[in-house]
């Protein structure tokens, strides 16, 4: 794996273009088989995270990928710091940290149950790419308490054989600009 970052000005430009005004009716994917394949991908992703299979989850991502949790609704990553803005290397680091056994915010590890719903898919810039919107509710149990993270995800997916790989996962927490308590689990 190339351990250098691929994030540059062109990356930010392309990201901004791809994540602006993409939920358009004229781009809606109506093909049930295509929609179902996107939905299956999201269900698989949620299950891998719930099962703590973080390396398998990471394998769903493309080599040049982004895991992005904005710190305000629609937050511009070139104007403000984010809850997370991980390229491949940083995402690997995030998982590496959780696996050290010394990441006290995840010792013991959160137990989670994710519901992914309201899946809609839209054509991307080419036939090889699509954009998927879904709502999520993560119920988390840790340290004797049960709590929830809610919001919607935007996945940019790229064709990979008969399935998909994740180019970008943008996690839009409804309370992203509020004080979050222990956001150390993988969202």
């Amino acid at each position: 794996m190339n351990q250098e970052s691929y994030v540059d000005e062109a990356f930010y430009r392309e990201l901004a273009a791809g994540f602006t005004g993409w939920q358009r009716e004229d781009r809606r994917i109506g093909d049930p088989a295509l929609l179902e394949s996107c939905r299956s991908m999201l269900h698989l992703e949620a299950r891998l995270l719930d099962e703590g299979r973080f390396e398998d989850w990471l394998a769903l991502f493309a080599d040049e990928c982004l895991f992005w949790v904005p710190g305000s609704p629609g937050g511009d990553p070139q104007r403000e710091i984010a809850v997370a803005f991980d390229d491949r290397r940083q995402l690997e680091g995030r998982i590496y940290r959780l696996r050290t056994g010394h990441a006290w915010s995840q010792v013991p590890q959160s137990r989670t149950s994710r519901i992914v719903a309201n899946v809609e898919a839209f054509r991307g810039a080419s036939d090889a790419v699509c954009m998927v919107r879904s709502s999520f509710l993560i119920t988390e149990f840790r340290g004797g308490e049960t709590r929830m993270f809610a919001g919607w995800n935007a996945h940019r997916l790229a064709r990979a054989g008969s399935g998909w790989r994740i180019l970008v996962k943008q996690v839009n927490l409804i309370d992203c600009d509020q004080n979050l308590r222990n956001p150390s689990l993988l969202l």
Binding site: V7, A82, A84, F85, G143
Partner: peptide, 27 residues
């Protein structure tokens, strides 16, 4: 702009990978 493109990202590190463990210890 170029300095800040780096500086925004360097600042996300400690709150994400350090402070969360401090706050857990405080709790």
């Amino acid at each position: 702009d170029d300095v800040n493109a780096l500086r925004l990202r360097t600042q996300e590190g400690f709150p994400s990978f350090g402070e969360v463990d401090d706050l857990t210890n405080f709790e």
